[in-house]
Amino acid sequence: MSNASGQLQLLLLHPADNVLVSVQSLRAGTEVDAEGVRYQIVEPIAVGHKIARLDMPAGEKIRRYGAPIGSLSRSVKAGEWVHMHNLQSDYLASHTRQSGSGNSSNRSPNGE
C-alpha cells in the first residue's frame, strides 16, 4: 500500500470495506499495491477519492468505515475510480456543478 519511498498511497479504513481511499494523488498508468493486491490505476485519482477493491456488479452496496455509503449504478473493476458516475446514495441524490473544479468527470451521468 505504499510507493517506492514507502509512503502510504491507498488506505483501507475497515476490513469489511470494498473500496480503498487515496491518500495522495495517483497518476493514470501507475500501479499501486494495497492490502496485498496490485491495482492498475487507469485514470487520475485525487486525494480522498475511492477506488474499487475488487470487481463488483451493479447494485452492490459499497462499504466505507465498514458502513454502507450507497449502491453501484453500474459494474466496476478492481482499481477503478468509484464516484458519482457509478455510485449513488440509498437516501438522497447528490448534486454537483456542471463543471467541477476537481476531477473533470465528476458529473453524475443522470444530470443531478
Binding site: S22, H49, H83, L92
Partner: peptide, 27 residues
C-alpha cells in the same frame, strides 16, 4: 431535505471525493 430536493451535499464535496450523503455523514 427530501422535500427541499437536495441533501446537505455541495459540489465541492464531490470534487473532494465524497460521492453520497451517507458517505459524508459517516465522515
Amino acid at each position: 431535505y427530501r422535500t427541499m430536493g437536495f441533501g446537505s451535499f455541495a459540489p465541492g464535496n464531490a470534487d473532494g471525493g465524497l460521492t453520497t450523503l451517507e458517505e459524508k455523514s459517516m465522515g
